[in-house]
C-alpha cells in the first residue's frame, strides 16, 4: 500500500515532467494542491511564507527525517561520519533517483568504504512520508529553511490526514 503511494508519486512526476531530469528542478512552488506544493515541472516542493511559516509537508518531513534518517545522515540532513549530507544531495539529484535510493537502498562497500544505505521500500513510517522528507530536504538545501524545528507551520489538511490514515493502515 505504501509502495503504491511512492510509486504513484514517481509515475506522476515523470508524466508531468516528460523526462527524468538528472538535476533537481527550480524549487519555486507554482502550484498548491490542498497544502502540497509543486514546482513548474510538477515535482513536490516547499513553500515558506515571509514570516517563516512552512507548509505542512515540510514540517512533516522535518519530523520524519529527524526520526528515521538523522542517525546516519546527521541532524537536519547536514551529514555525519557515517553518511552524506542530504541537503547537498538533493540539489544534484533527481526526484526519481531520490525515491529509488530510499526505496531500494544502495551498497558501496569496498576497500576503505563501508557505506550501506538500507532499503526502506517496505517501511510505511518512511514510504508514506517520502515526499515530505524530499520536500523538507529541498527546503533545507535549496530554500532558506534553517536547521532545527520550523517555528511556524500551516495546518494539517484533510487530504493529508486521509492520505496518512490510508497509507499507514
Amino acid at each position: 500500500m505504501m509502495l503504491k503511494h511512492a510509486i504513484r508519486g514517481v509515475v506522476l512526476a515523470a508524466c508531468t515532467a516528460g523526462f527524468a531530469s538528472a538535476q533537481a528542478a527550480d524549487p519555486t512552488a507554482v502550484e498548491n494542491d490542498a497544502g502540497k506544493y509543486f514546482d513548474a515541472e510538477g515535482y513536490p516542493t516547499f513553500n515558506i511564507a515571509e514570516d517563516g511559516t512552512v507548509d505542512f509537508h515540510t514540517y512533516s518531513g522535518f519530523r520524519r527525517f529527524n526520526s528515521e534518517c538523522h542517525v546516519c545522515h546527521g541532524p537536519d540532513g547536514v551529514g555525519s561520519t557515517f553518511a552524506p549530507a542530504l541537503v547537498e544531495s538533493v540539489q544534484d539529484m533527481s526526484y526519481e533517483d531520490f525515491v529509488a535510493v530510499v526505496a531500494g537502498g544502495r551498497e558501496n562497500v569496498g576497500s576503505g568504504n563501508q557505506n550501506v544505505m538500507p532499503a526502506f521500500g517496505t517501511n510505511p513510517n518512511i514510504m508514506c512520508y517520502l515526499d515530505d522528507i524530499y520536500i523538507y530536504l529541498r527546503a533545507r538545501g535549496e530554500g532558506d529553511l534553517p536547521r532545527g524545528r520550523p517555528a511556524k507551520k500551516e495546518a494539517k489538511s484533510d487530504v493529508f490526514a486521509e492520505m496518512e490514515d490510508s497509507c499507514m493502515g
Binding site: 529527524n66 517496505t122 517501511n123
Partner: peptide, 23 residues
C-alpha cells in the same frame, strides 16, 4: 533535547523509532 513522539508501525528488519529528536 527536544523530543516529539509519534505513532509508528512495525515492519520486521526496519527501524521502529517513533520520535523526532533535536539535541
Amino acid at each position: 533535547m527536544d523530543y516529539e513522539p509519534f505513532r509508528v508501525s512495525y515492519t520486521a528488519g526496519q527501524p521502529y523509532v517513533g520520535a523526532t529528536l533535536s539535541m
